[in-house]
Every structure is written in structure tokens, then in C-alpha cells.
Simulated scan of single mutants.
Amino acid sequence: MTRVLILGANGEISKAAINSFLENTSYTLRLFLRDANRLPDYASDRIRVREGDATNYEDVYNAMDDVDIVLASLSGDLDKEAVTIVKAMQEKRVKRLIFVTSLGIYNEVPGKFGEWVEQHTREYAPVYKKAADIIENSGLDYTIFRPAWLTDTNEIDYEITQKDEAFKGTEVSRKSVAAVAVNIAKNPALHLKENIGINKPNTDFDKPRWK
């Protein structure tokens, strides 16, 4: 039985991933977050919940027991969280990591939308880039996600770009990002040691349509 640890389990991408894992796999889910009271009632015997702080090594280390795959969809001090996650995974000998960052951390978004992204991510982009660097140099079997601007659209529709390619599109649904994570969990060799942009095709606008 595959066991997936989801760090930042109350985040919107995480909640979409939880639903997708429950619907499309038989995997056991370990949900990690600061306050378990914030979680919906998933009414599933495949879920275990642990409270903790993703910057606290002991909390993360203890959450890694009997885990096969880690999905980290966090925010805030992402570089500190990356250090903690890498150290705990190395100590527990857990190898497969899916780590969510942000588009724009490499100035890879072209055109008017790139200018818009730079304006709206400049406060946290350096921290997210540092976190991505930590993951890439960790020796873990990672995949780094750089999703486009996120929507709650009920669809799975996406395309992938690599780190050395110009980013495409302006938006993508959280459900699509979750689908990529579930596909990787099913096939851990998929996007192995890749740093990928995720966007909805044919959304090449100057900014997200609702902004």
C-alpha cells in the first residue's frame, strides 16, 4: 500500500490532491498541517492527520514514518521548509518528493504576463527560488512544480514546460495541478528530477482573465 504524506494539507492544491487521491487511488494519506480543525471531514479510513509546523524539524521528521511519497504544497518561509523537509527525508530515507513553488522564479514568463507576474511575485519569488535550489541540490528524487495563476475551475486541462523553456499560458486549475501530482505518485519515474511549469493550453493573455 502506497503512503503519501501531504505537507500543507489545508492548502487549496493539497485539498484538490486529497480528493483526487481518494477518488483515483487506494493510497493511504497522511495529512500534515498546523491546525487539524481546519480540515474538511473526508470521512475516509485511508486518512491520518498530524499537526505540526513544516519549519520544525522534529515535527516533519516524525511525520515521515512509513511514508513512500511526499507532496509539499506550502507557503511563507518556503526556503526554511525546504531545508527541514530535505533533512527529514534524508534521515528517514524517503526519496520521492513533489514540491510546489511558483511561476516566475526564474524570470521564465515572457511578455506582458511576465511583467505582471514579476510585479505580483517580487516579494516572495527570491525565497521560492532559494527553496527550489535547495530541492534540486538535495539528492532526492524530486519534481518541482511551477503552476500558472491558479483557478478553482472544475477541469483537468494542462500542458508542461521545462525549466529551460519559456513559460506558457497564464492560468491553470488547482484540479489540474493535483492531477499531475497523483499521476506522479502512480508512476514515480514521471517527471523525475524535473522542474516543470504547469499551465492550461491556449491561455496566453497579458494577465489572468479575472484580474
Results as ranks from 00 to 15, higher is better:
Ala148Leu: 04
Ala148Asp: 05
Trp149Leu: 10
Leu150Lys: 01
Leu150Glu: 09
Thr151Glu: 01
Thr151Ala: 03
Thr151His: 04
Asp152Trp: 01
Asp152His: 10
Thr153Gln: 10
Asn154Tyr: 11
Glu155Cys: 04
Glu155Gln: 12
Ile156Asp: 00
Ile156Phe: 00
Ile156Leu: 00
Ile156Val: 14
Tyr158Trp: 08
Glu159His: 08
Glu159Thr: 07
Ile160Glu: 03
Thr161Arg: 08
Thr161Lys: 05
Thr161Leu: 13
Gln162His: 14
Lys163Gly: 03
Lys163Asn: 03
Glu165Ser: 15
Ala166Gly: 14
Ala166Gln: 14
Phe167Gly: 08
Thr170Lys: 06
Glu171Thr: 12
Val172Ile: 09
Val172Ser: 03
Ser173Arg: 04
Arg174Ser: 00
Arg174Gln: 07
Lys175Asp: 07
Lys175His: 09
Ser176Phe: 05
Ser176Gly: 03
Val177Gln: 07
Val177Thr: 08
Val177His: 07
Ala178Leu: 01
Ala179Thr: 09
Ala179Arg: 12
Ala179Tyr: 07
Ala179Val: 07
Ala181Gly: 03
Ala181Phe: 02
Val182Thr: 06
Val182Gly: 04
Asn183Val: 07
Asn183Pro: 03
Asn183Phe: 08
Ala185Val: 10
Lys186Met: 12
Pro188Gln: 06
Ala189Arg: 11
Ala189Cys: 07
Ala189Tyr: 09
Leu190His: 08
Leu190Ser: 13
His191Ala: 13
Leu192Ile: 04
Leu192Arg: 13
Leu192Val: 00
Glu194Met: 13
Glu194Val: 09
Asn195Pro: 02
Asn195Trp: 07
Asn195Gln: 14
Asn195Ala: 15
Gly197Met: 02
Gly197Lys: 01
Gly197Ile: 03
Ile198Ala: 08
Ile198Cys: 07
